[in-house]
């Protein structure tokens, strides 16, 4: 069986989970194997129908544990993997999965490769590709264990609906948690998550202060259904929270469109957004390195371009 973990909170199935299930289905097809999906936690039953749309043959669902616990979640996934003789275990690269997938790897004594951007079947075995040195190189990684595990970089693997047997198997994860979440604060409810956004509006040193992030760039992002990103310089200056930082010491993103305003394009920033499909850069400095990677480069004052752009988009909609 190819087993995929589906990350959901309170009945909201993450887009990255659907991408992982879609990739699991493609692997199941090329390895002539079945696809199992395991989903845990309160709200799990509510996402079963959505999971089935992506071709699951079996959905293993447990409403326990009620709160996220890295050790109990690992136990739940490892148990299903063992009982069903899973050959491959995939996870979406969400904050939750990045946190507990290594514990599953220890339990199954299986190799885990994180943040993969491609899979390949070679002689009937899974081989994966992973950016290393912040995307400055790409490693092709093979497994020496019987079970191959990976977390998938969000926004990279294509969504694909398909058919599967869709059998639902209920189970429960019991036991006392060693560590567990006691509080969740969703501060930016309704806002688009950076790693899952298909468009990112990002600002750098050239933005010159916190107000422009909160007002103009946020307004532009809202119009486009985009998330707001920032360079390290803007975060270090205290203009915007670190959770918005894109780059080597921030988040790695691969949206369809990355719009960089007043970002010079330091190597550490390029490391975080270099796999974006399209890059649009607006910068006063014609020699800014960001122009070397931009699909559309605009040499101009961002403070003049952004308001004009907001008007143009309003007109276009």
């Amino acid at each position: 069986m190819i087993l995929v973990f589906a990350d959901q909170r309170d009945g909201n199935l993450k887009k990255a989970s659907k991408e992982a299930i879609s990739e699991g289905k493609r692997l199941a097809t090329s390895l002539s194997d079945s696809l199992g999906v395991v989903v845990l936690g309160s709200g799990a039953k509510g996402v079963v129908d959505e999971i089935k749309k992506y071709g699951a043959d079996k959905v293993f669902v447990s409403e326990t544990p009620d709160a996220y616990s890295p050790d109990l979640y690992a136990e739940g996934v490892a148990k299903i993997a063992k009982e069903n003789d899973a050959k491959v275990v995939l996870f979406p690269g969400t904050s939750m999965c990045v946190d507990f997938a290594p514990r599953v790897s220890a339990k199954l004594e299986a190799g885990l490769v994180t943040d993969i951007t491609a899979t390949e079947v070679k002689d009937g075995k899974l081989v994966v590709k992973k950016p290393v040195y912040s995307g400055k190189a790409i490693a092709t990684v093979d497994y020496k264990s019987d079970i191959a595990m990976a977390t998938l970089r969000p926004n990279v693997f294509e969504l694909a609906e398909s058919n599967g047997a869709g059998e639902v198997v209920e189970f429960s994860v019991d036991g006392e948690a060693k560590a567990k979440a006691i509080k969740v604060e969703l501060k930016e409810a309704g806002k688009v998550e950076l790693t899952e956004a298909s468009i990112i509006v990002s600002g750098g040193r050239g933005v010159k202060g916190p107000e422009y992030f909160q007002n103009e760039l946020q307004q532009l992002a809202d119009l486009l259904g985009a998330a707001v990103g920032a360079s390290r310089a803007a975060v270090d200056a205290g203009w915007i929270d670190h959770s918005h930082q894109v780059g080597q010491t921030g988040k790695v993103v691969s949206p369809k469109v990355y719009m960089a305003f007043g970002i010079s394009g330091a190597i550490q920033h390029l490391a975080g957004m270099g796999t974006s499909q399209y890059i649009i850069a607006v910068n006063k400095d014609p020699d800014a390195p960001i122009f070397n990677v931009a699909s559309l480069g605009v040499v101009a004052d961002l403070f003049k371009v952004v308001p004009a752009l907001i008007e143009e988009i309003k007109k276009a909609k």
């Binding site: 567990k180 979440a181 969740v184 501060k187 998550e193 899952e196």
Partner: peptide
């Protein structure tokens, strides 16, 4: 994603 959680 979209916030913070506290783990004990």
């Amino acid at each position: 994603e979209g916030g913070r959680e506290t783990v004990e």
